[in-house]
């Protein structure tokens, strides 16, 4: 049998045991990395979005250099791919997908959700995004709004800056951040109140 066809959990244990014995990667290092990776979550992206909604200078920074904008809020970007941010407007709705694998703005949103990695999302998002969003997320993009699908194929990672929903006038950043969901920053949903 091809050794790679071994049960995956056993394969992981064997590889980790060998790497530890050889002094290449220790268990402590893996555990520490798991903890830092687990800490990234959509709340970080939500804080960036909320700040951009209330602070025009921050919004300009976010749209010109997402990495610097993330760092400005204390998010660790060192060693991470550069972050680009695409702005939704009354004229354009952005949707991010990775048709080749699963590139995702992990530094600011955390692990990609299950659906983002699925074959059907990857296939449908580029070809029929309006039908995909309407049927799966009940997100209906009006005909007058252009849909721009961003296929994340290379070294950047892309996040969407959603449109601030009506009815949030006067809200502070913390309150705004709470209405921003993971899907809003990929473009499968839009924030509402």
């Amino acid at each position: 049998m091809n050794i790679l066809e071994t049960d995956s959990a056993r394969l992981l244990t064997a590889v980790r045991t060998l790497l530890e014995q050889k002094g290449i990667v220790s268990t402590a290092e893996v555990m520490e990395r798991m903890a830092t990776t687990d800490a990234a979550n959509p709340g970080q992206g939500g804080r960036m979005v909320a700040k951009a909604w209330v602070d025009p200078a921050y919004r300009a920074l976010l749209l010109s250099d997402g990495t610097k904008a993330a760092e400005a809020l204390g998010i660790m970007m060192r060693g991470m791919p550069p972050l680009g941010v695409l702005e939704n407007t009354p004229e354009v709705h952005n949707l991010v997908v990775c048709t080749l694998c699963s590139c995702y703005p992990r530094a600011v949103l955390g692990y990609p959700p299950f659906w983002y990695k699925s074959a059907s999302f990857r296939a449908r998002a580029v070809r029929d995004p309006r039908e995909l969003l309407a049927s799966e997320w009940k997100t209906v993009i009006p005909d007058a709004v252009k849909v721009r699908v961003v296929d994340s194929t290379a070294d950047y990672r892309w996040m969407v800056l959603p449109v601030r929903p009506a009815g949030t006038e006067g809200w502070d950043e913390a309150r705004l951040a709470r209405i921003v969901r993971e899907g809003d920053m990929i473009g499968v949903t839009v924030p509402g109140i």
Partner: peptide, 16 residues
């Protein structure tokens, strides 16, 4: 690319 698509919808792709 896909004729059934809404003609002015866009794709934005990183290409070397």
């Amino acid at each position: 690319i896909w004729p059934e698509a809404k003609p002015d919808d866009e794709l934005l792709i990183e290409i070397f």
